[in-house]
Amino acid sequence: MISELEIMLMICLIVLAFITVQTQKLRRSAVYLGAFSLLCSFAYLSYNAPDVAIAEAVIGCTLSTILLLIAMKKYHVITIFYVQDEAGDPAAIKKERRELTTSLERFLLDRGFEPQTISTDLDDRELCENECFNLLIMHEKNDITIYSSGIRYIAPDVQEYIVGHKPPHLNVSFYCVNERAPGGETYDE
């Protein structure tokens, strides 16, 4: 006899598996996979296999999720910091900014990169010292200033894309900061 709990678990598992495959961003996909593993271990538990459930919870949820996330970090995640002060801006400008960010993300996704956008109101000097960005976009009134760091292989394309797709009344200035990439230190044995 199948209980209602099991039916719910099974439906959730199928939905999560589907979301995992269909999500656009790899990073979210990894997190969904972790949730899938956790529900899977509940399913094992409901079939009276607690041993397998513990192993699945530890390995599927912790180890493999973290390994996948690190692998993505080592591959090409591009961290975009978006510096802005939202207070007092009209809604039209906000919408414009959102569109710019979204189209930039889509551009990077098409190229096979993994964009990660962080909106912040921190001081840009502080961010520069921490060297934790790939793209730093500063948006003040009608001026956009972009710093790129550690992505020399794609920076010209990004510049071209932004200049080509920006709203016409904005001024874009683009600088390359040649520092090392975040987390990009490589060790050789």
Binding site: P50, D51, I54, A55, V58, I59, T62, L63, I66
Partner: peptide, 24 residues
Amino acid sequence: VIINGADSVGGGFQGGAVLASAFI
């Protein structure tokens, strides 16, 4: 989990994986 594995849920492998997650 390791020590109690003989007569309840768990065992060497599961407990070892939990210990490894401490290192992570």
